[in-house]
């Protein structure tokens, strides 16, 4: 999943657009979803953001839906928790109920509405966030943080971890392949043993890599601060008008009597 997101973040139509512009749009939509407390706002935001991701940024719809789907499974669990109430007494006004031994599970009209409102808000916000992460590589987000004067240490840690994640992913894949080739996952027992070995070995490799990386940084004159040139971006002429229409429609949906 991480690799897929990363690939599209580097290969979509909005790749070169200033991250401030994309983050601005996403943050506005998320704020509106959270403040305007009406299901319609969330659904509308969801629709708009899917449209922007698929038609404007040209990210394949399967990818957009897959990422949203993964997030939805987590959301669904919490939404079900909100919708359903559990009690020892038989509920009076419930839309739906069932008994489970001494317990009563029930869904009331009220709780259903709360749950739906929560779901719409969460999906709208998630879709807006997805537009950002699917069109903007982490490099650009880090660059944005730098411009916003985030602490240098935070930025360095993010840069190095981002890079380390992919190096470790490669190593992990190679190790799993090598173990599989030697029947490391052929049985339940072998799987347990192989995973344990993999974990400890990966830790050692990560440590060695970090040592080697530090030497390499010193070889290039590292003196304790990671400094690199800023990246160059373009401002997308259409993203502002699109954003204005999205925001206007959300506000109207939120305030219209």
């Amino acid at each position: 999943m991480l690799r897929v997101i990363d690939r599209y973040a580097f290969a979509n139509r909005l790749r070169a657009v200033d991250p401030a512009q994309k983050a601005g749009l996403a943050v506005l939509v998320i704020l509106l979803c959270l403040t305007l407390d009406r299901p319609l706002v969330g659904w509308l935001a969801l629709g708009w953001m899917l449209a922007v991701a698929i038609w404007y940024a040209r990210i394949p719809w399967r990818v957009v839906i897959a990422v949203l789907g993964a997030e939805s499974t987590f959301l669904a669990l919490s939404v079900i928790g909100v919708a359903m109430s559990v009690s020892f007494d038989q509920p009076v006004a419930a839309r739906w109920m069932t008994s489970l031994g001494p317990l009563w599970l029930s869904v009331s009209n009220e709780s259903l509405q709360t749950a739906l409102r929560l779901l719409s808000r969460a999906l709208g916000s998630a879709a807006a966030l997805n537009v950002l992460i699917l069109t903007t590589p982490l490099v650009d987000l880090i660059e944005l943080l730098r411009r916003l004067r985030a602490p240098a240490l935070l930025i360095e840690v993010m840069t190095l971890s981002y890079r380390a994640i992919f190096v470790l992913l490669d190593t992990l894949e190679q190790m799993v392949t090598a173990q599989t080739a030697r029947l490391g996952y052929a049985s339940w027992r072998a799987t347990l043993r192989s995973s344990a070995l993999l974990g400890s070995r990966l830790f050692v490799v990560a440590y060695q890599r970090s040592q080697a990386l530090e030497t390499a940084l010193h070889a290039r004159g590292f003196t304790g601060e990671v400094r690199v040139l800023p990246l160059c971006y373009r401002i997308d002429r259409w993203l502002w008008p699109i954003g204005a229409v999205v925001v206007a429609s959300l506000v109207v949906a939120g305030w219209w009597p």
Partner: peptide, 17 residues
């Protein structure tokens, strides 16, 4: 090279030195 490249973008990595 994996021990040497630390930055996510080629441009930024080369600018480090």
């Amino acid at each position: 090279p994996d021990e040497q490249l630390f930055s996510a973008s080629v441009w930024q990595d080369i600018s480090f030195g």
